[in-house]
Amino acid sequence: MTAAEAISADNRPFAIRTYAPAQLREALRRMYLIRRFEEGAEDSYMRGLIHGTMHLSIGQEASAMATCMELTDADKITSTHRGHGHCIAKGADVGRMFAEFFGKETGYCHGRGGSMHIADVRTGNLGANGIVGGGLPIAVGAALTAKRLGRDDVTVCFFGDGANNEGAFHEALNMAAVWKLPVVFVCENNRYGMSTPAAYATAVRNIADRAVAYAMPGVTVDGNDFSAVAEAVHIAVARARAGEGPSLVENLTYRWRGHSKSDRNRYRTKEEIEEWMARDPIARFRAELIAHGILDEAGADAIAADAVATVEAGIAFAKDSPSPAVTDVTRYVYAES
């Protein structure tokens, strides 16, 4: 049997047959980290340690992590208001993220941005965004840079189902296609934009159907299935790196929490939420790793415990960090000479 035949005969899930065990364990660790980070953020918010609002992605961890599997620090992402998962999946430090939530000088944005604006330039995260659809053209611009400078890095653009009805979405996809830019549009379709069902607000059935209008491949996958997402993004990234242009990947998923801290959940039922909670992407990925011998229960528990400890240390770091000086309110408006 040739190696190629061995792979095609291998009917294990895509991620298991594609990534090294250490990579898979790290992916699970980051998914736990996303979950615990957001729980920690929510808890801090309840205790009045964080002001403003926040958008939690609990329940969507596979989409964030599986999408980032093959991205290096040179590859870019643009994120959204629901961006903590993307940020952690791309390799950010949760201590600096918490510090940002707490408005501290040690935070990723030196306390100026908060949850909605976290970026980590070092790991290629160009930032969350307060404007729905705001990251779409920016991602295309980042891809243009890579192409003009002859680099082979790609840009992954995360956005929600709600964002696909902004003009920016349509303009961005069209330009990416006509210029054959190395960008992967990843729609996290969690069924709602705030309270508005995608099925009500969007004329097409699947958001990936929009790809046809911009002459690029479009695929819809189970966004809570790590391997399904990883495989779809793998194909899209390979296409982008090969200079063949953009793709649209739609991850069907669900947010367990309300839209933000002011959501009364009047637009969906408790049953619907519970049904989706039963499809926990982390539990599913963990079970898959155990089933394929990547780790055992004790190993998985140790990874989960590590995430808890990392989050606790991150919160402690944030609490101990200094606040920015009030006299520095106009700092960072322009470059410092």
């Binding site: 940002e100 944005c109 306390g111 100026r112 606040s323 920015p324 009030v326 309110v329 408006v333």
Partner: peptide
């Protein structure tokens, strides 16, 4: 308002 975007940190936000 200060010659800056509105900052997140509550003390800076108040001062702005």
């Amino acid at each position: 308002a200060a010659d800056a975007p509105v900052p997140y940190n509550p003390d800076l936000e108040r001062a702005a």
